[in-house]
Lab assay of single mutants.
Amino acid sequence: MFKRLMMVALLVIAPLSAATAADQTNPYKLMDEAAQKTFDRLKNEQPQIRANPDYLRTIVDQELLPYVQVKYAGALVLGQYYKSATPAQREAYFAAFREYLKQAYGQALAMYHGQTYQIAPEQPLGDKTIVPIRVTIIDPNGRPPVRLDFQWRKNSQTGNWQAYDMIAEGVSMITTKQNEWGTLLRTKGIDGLTAQLKSISQQKITLEEKK
């Protein structure tokens, strides 16, 4: 169930391209415009997507990853294993993690069937560096609404905000991946996880038929 919630949630996290980005210092504006741009692209490019579902990787690479804190999220997933990894191991892992996100997020976007969304009203940021933004996803086919909290983090150097995690039903996506990959990290280390991520990233994206 959580895996499905995570995939549905990713439908609204794909941010804007650099040329049309919203105010990078306001995570609420980023979330709002990102959702609108993403849904528009999914709707307008269905012919290309249906002809070649792996085209979704391109959308992810162009529109999402430049505005997601990939390395920060990847380091959180590694936890204690990050500090013990060599620079070469980290570089290989982050490259594999990025390719994994292209496949995983692309597969999530393949679930698009006309969903709509509501974003919580903007709250004062103050001096906060981590801000959760509640998004409610509404399914046109009558499924119950899904309420999610996207975690946005302020870059201490640039002042810009980027998304790095999502919490559904009190469970963090980062925590879920830590639990899912924990045994592999304990037995085969970061190299074993890197190899698995490379394998997963090679899987073809498949479209979910409308139910």
Rank of each mutant, 00 (worst) to 15 (best):
P132I: 09
G114W: 05
T176I: 06
T183S: 10
Q157K: 06
M6N: 04
V70S: 11
I119S: 05
K204D: 12
P140N: 00
Q151M: 07
Y28A: 07
M1K: 00
K43M: 14
I119R: 05
F39T: 10
Y72C: 08
S84T: 04
E180M: 02
T25Q: 00
Q178H: 06
A163P: 12
F39G: 04
T129I: 10
E99M: 01
E45I: 07
Y100E: 04
L109M: 02
I119P: 06
K83C: 00
V146K: 13
E91Q: 01
A14G: 10
T206C: 03
A34D: 13
E180R: 14
M111A: 12
V8R: 04
Q162C: 15
P145S: 09
L197N: 07
Q162L: 10
R57F: 00
H113Q: 06
Q118M: 04
W181E: 15
G189Q: 03
A88L: 08
Q196S: 15
R98Y: 15
A104L: 12
I174N: 03
D149L: 12
P132R: 10
I133L: 02
Y164W: 12
D40N: 11
H113C: 14
N155P: 10
Y105K: 02
D191M: 01
G126C: 01
L101T: 12
S84N: 02
L76E: 15
L56N: 02
R41L: 14
D61P: 03
Q178L: 15
G114P: 12
D165R: 10
A195S: 03
W181D: 12
M1E: 00
W152C: 03
L30M: 07
G126F: 15
R153F: 05
P15I: 01
T129A: 04
F150N: 01
D23Y: 09
T86W: 08
L5C: 07
T175R: 02
I167S: 02
I174K: 09
L64W: 12
P27G: 04
L148H: 14
Y72V: 13
R143H: 04
A75K: 05
G74E: 05
D32H: 00
F2W: 05
M111P: 04
K154H: 01
V68F: 02
M166I: 05
G189Y: 09
L193K: 12
P145G: 12
D149H: 03
P47W: 12
F2E: 11
D61A: 02
G182C: 04
M6A: 02
L11G: 08
A21R: 04
R50L: 10
P53T: 03
G189D: 05
A34E: 15
T20W: 02
L10R: 07
A110D: 12
S172L: 10
L76K: 02
Q123P: 04
Q178M: 00
Y72H: 05
D23K: 03
Q196W: 00
F39S: 01
V12P: 03
L184Q: 12
D139F: 03
V135E: 14
Y105G: 02
Q36W: 14
V146S: 11
D191G: 09
G126T: 03
M111T: 10
A21G: 04
P47V: 03
K43I: 11
N52E: 13
A95G: 04
Q107G: 06
K3Y: 02
K198T: 08
P53F: 00
A73G: 12
Q178Y: 00
Q107N: 15
Q107R: 03
K177Q: 03
A110H: 14
Q151T: 06
A104H: 07
V131H: 14
I119N: 06
Q162P: 13
I205P: 08
G189W: 14
A108K: 15
T194S: 10
A108C: 14
E208D: 15
Q115D: 13
Q178E: 15
A110W: 14
L42P: 11
Q202L: 06
P15N: 05
V60C: 13
F2T: 05
A19S: 10
T183F: 07
K210P: 11
L42D: 00
D149Q: 09
Q48S: 00
A73T: 11
S84P: 04
D165F: 08
Y82I: 01
M111G: 11
D54W: 02
A14D: 01
T194N: 08
L11V: 05
L11E: 01
P124W: 02
D32E: 06
W181N: 04
A21V: 08
H113T: 09
I205Q: 14
T116V: 13
P66I: 02
G126N: 15
W152M: 09
T158V: 15
T194R: 12
K211V: 14
M1S: 01
K128H: 00
D61H: 01
G192K: 04
F2S: 04
A19Y: 01
H113I: 14
Y72I: 01
I190N: 13
V131S: 06
Q196R: 06
Q196H: 11
V171W: 07
E45C: 14
S172E: 10
G114C: 08
Q107H: 02
D165I: 03
K128T: 15
T25I: 14
N179S: 06
M6C: 02
L5D: 14
T129Q: 10
T194G: 11
W181R: 09
P144F: 01
Q36D: 03
T38P: 04
Y112N: 04
Q107Y: 02
T129D: 06
R57Y: 15
Q24E: 06
Q157N: 09
T158R: 08
N52P: 08
A22V: 07
Y112M: 14
V70K: 07
D40I: 10
Y93H: 08
M166S: 09
D54H: 12
N26C: 00
M166P: 05
A14N: 08
Q118L: 11
S201G: 10
P47L: 10
Q157Y: 00
D23V: 10
I133K: 14
R50N: 08
R4W: 11
T158E: 01
Y93C: 11
K102F: 02
V77N: 05
A9R: 02
N44T: 01
K102M: 00
P140A: 05
E169S: 10
A95Y: 03
Q178T: 15
D149Y: 06
L109P: 05
K211H: 08
L185I: 08
Q36M: 08
A14Q: 10
L109Y: 00
S17F: 15
P15E: 08
I190V: 07
K43F: 13
K154N: 13
T136R: 06
K188S: 12
L184W: 08
L11D: 00
A35L: 11
F94T: 00
A85L: 04
L30H: 06
L56K: 11
V68I: 12
S17E: 03
L193S: 10
R143N: 01
P87Q: 15
T116C: 10
I138S: 09
L207A: 12
R98V: 09
Q46P: 03
P121G: 08
E180P: 14
A19R: 14
K71F: 10
Y112D: 15
E91M: 09
S199A: 09
T116F: 06
H113W: 13
W181P: 10
Y112W: 08
K29P: 08
